[in-house]
């Protein structure tokens, strides 16, 4: 058997970056094969928001009031987009924890693979999945009467903000996944669920008690959802507070802040896993 020629160890930053990107490409390719062969996973993430739309949009919908008037389902859909981005974290946490428990991460770490590359592969795969989730959910939204009133450009900007939030949360998910067992990761939705409720997802913060209203308005999810409602021209924009008036700035600022904190934490945690 002939021996393969081992490539030289990268020395310059440019070479290192090239390897990191190539590693990311290989790792994300593997993840994408997973969802092509196991598409049920995508349905799983979509099942929950679809049930919520039916439940809140139709069952409770008649009893729901939109501050300032307007169609409740049009108000609800941007909230569901945002909530789906947040819940996407659960699959990130789970896959990261499962890979660590099954020895896959050990193999990566015993190889001369760029740790940034491996994590970026995860991020790319999750972002592609979430984009697909979002597209399907938007098509469903169109069926129940949701519209992007300000044109394609604004709609794309809103989608960009939603995916930006998802991007930031992938790093949170990696950080959590590297600390949890797969069993623990299965329970990750528990702290997330209340976080998505203490927001403007289902109800305008104006209709909440004052203390809840402050929490709801400053929730990063609310910033993204409020910004989306602005960009889609949906009814029920909250107003009267700094956070509500600067939703777009916050919808960019919050994810950037989360990324700045959790990206280095994830990489450090990955490199020092069990060290």
């Amino acid at each position: 058997m002939s021996m393969p020629i081992a490539p030289a160890i990268p020395t310059t930053p440019a070479e290192r970056l090239r390897w990191a990107l190539s590693d990311a490409w290989v790792v994300s390719g593997r993840e994408l094969i997973h969802w092509v062969r196991n598409p049920v996973v995508i349905l799983n993430t979509l099942l929950f928001p679809l049930i919520m739309v039916l439940l809140f949009g139709y069952v409770f919908g008649s009893a729901m009031r939109v501050a300032g008037g307007g169609d409740y389902r049009e108000f609800l859909m941007p909230g569901m987009f945002g909530q789906t981005m947040v819940f996407g974290v659960i699959s990130t946490v789970y896959v990261v924890a499962a890979n660590a428990a099954r020895g896959v991460t050990d193999r990566f770490r015993s190889m001369p693979v760029s740790s940034f590359g491996v994590l970026m592969g995860r991020v790319i795969a999750d972002m592609l999945t979430s984009t697909l989730d979002l597209v399907i959910l938007m098509l469903c939204g169109l069926l129940v009467g949701w519209r992007a009133h300000h044109g394609l450009g604004s709609a794309l900007a809103a989608a960009g903000l939603l995916l930006l939030l998802r991007f930031a949360l992938v790093w949170v998910g990696i950080c959590m996944g590297l600390r949890l067992t797969p069993e623990g990761a299965g329970a990750a939705w528990m702290p997330l669920f209340p976080l998505t409720l203490l927001a403007n997802t289902f109800v305008s913060p104006e209709l909440m008690p004052a203390w809840l209203r402050i929490i709801a308005e400053w929730n990063p999810l609310s910033a993204t959802v409020q910004a989306c409602r602005e960009l889609f021209g949906s009814p029920g924009l909250s107003g009267g507070s700094w956070a509500a008036e600067h939703a777009i700035e916050l919808a960019i600022g919050w994810p950037l802040l989360i990324t700045v904190i959790f990206l280095p934490l994830s990489i450090r945690r990955y490199r020092r896993l069990n060290r």
């Binding site: 393969p4 390719g29 593997r30």
Partner: peptide, 17 residues
């Protein structure tokens, strides 16, 4: 979920072949 060949090909690519 991958085949044996796909598994090895992936690891080989990560070894920078």
């Amino acid at each position: 979920i991958l085949t044996g060949r796909e598994n090895l090909r992936m690891w080989a690519r990560l070894f920078r072949l």
